[in-house]
Design a binder for these strands. Structure first.
Lengths: 164, 164
DNA sequence: CTAAATTAGTTTAGAACTAAACTATCTCGG
DNA sequence: CCGAGATAGTTTAGTTCTAAACTAATTTAG
């Protein structure tokens, strides 16, 4: 038993002369997928919730005054329609409230309920430990460097996206 | 016009004392989401197809002898059921073929059809240029370093996932 | 040789997400 | 003040994806 595990992912069978750009993209996607897979499974098993719901709660937790649907949508980087659905579910579950904005009747202000806050506070430290464990193989210096290079990539993506 | 664009994403309003691990994860996710958004839109506009279909074709393109459903599933890092649905669609579109495996009657071998190969060959160079453009803000050295650090992260993720 | 366990793939129900069309409200130029 | 356009959010139709239950074929242990 304990065979050498042959890992298969998007990089498998990649031609050795593949462009650096494409290799970076595929590896980035692999890392994201692996982390999401772990976090999804853990959130489901231990808190019976999903990444999307957790992320939405986490944005609200950082915004004491709440956020509008549009602010949520841009921070979560998903469409308005998606936020509508997620919010519907969280309101049903009693974790967030959706109140009309007095100044602008088109707007809605979403806030954590106290139940929602409690639930999120219970998840946060556990979630943090999962992430720590996943990255335990990197030194602080490597993480800092990775963060910086991802920052450069993010800048590049913003620039490429912006110029048309 | 041309206001300073205030970028909003998952990192917005993050407490400054947030753990390095979490920052890395959120930034990684932001970068992946931004790239996927661009590629999704481009694939739809110019080739009327999706990332999932493109990725499946791309795995087949690297496997001259075709792949079984299970091999596709592990390389794409998605569930078997997902591959069943994607393959159904691509077979319908005439881009791939699904033939029974003589040696093992449980298995199916999926291959690019010549139409599929042609279609993929038409997309590849264009797709590559999109990725190049998105990463144009990084030097070769930065990309190489990023690739290496992502490799370290991938190792860490595999290690954390393996020791259950 | 055969029953049990494993493996390959499909099906089902449902969450997450998009794009586009839509409603309602607000803003602004004339 | 009013109509055109912009903005906030919802709805709809459809794709992607998961998890779990399922079918069928293969392997393995006794």
């Amino acid at each position: 038993m304990n065979d050498a595990v042959t890992l298969h992912d998007r990089e498998s069978a990649l031609a050795s002369d593949t462009k650096l750009e494409l290799k970076v993209w595929l590896r980035l996607l692999t890392c994201t997928t692996l982390i999401e897979r772990e976090v999804r499974q853990s959130l489901r098993e231990r808190f019976d919730t999903t990444i999307a719901r957790f992320d939405l709660l986490s944005q609200l937790d950082r915004a004491p005054k709440g956020l509008t649907m549009g602010e949520l949508s841009s921070r979560l980087m998903v469409t308005n329609g998606n936020v509508t659905g997620l919010t519907d579910a969280l309101v049903r579950e009693g974790l967030v409230s959706r109140a009309p904005e007095p100044d602008d009747r088109r707007s809605l202000r979403i806030r954590l309920t106290s139940t929602g806050k409690q639930f999120f506070d219970a998840m946060t430290p556990v979630h943090e430990r999962w992430i720590d464990r996943l990255m335990a193989g990197l030194t602080r210096a490597e993480m800092a460097h990775l963060l910086e290079l991802l920052g450069r990539l993010k800048q590049s993506l913003a620039a490429a996206g912006a110029q048309k």
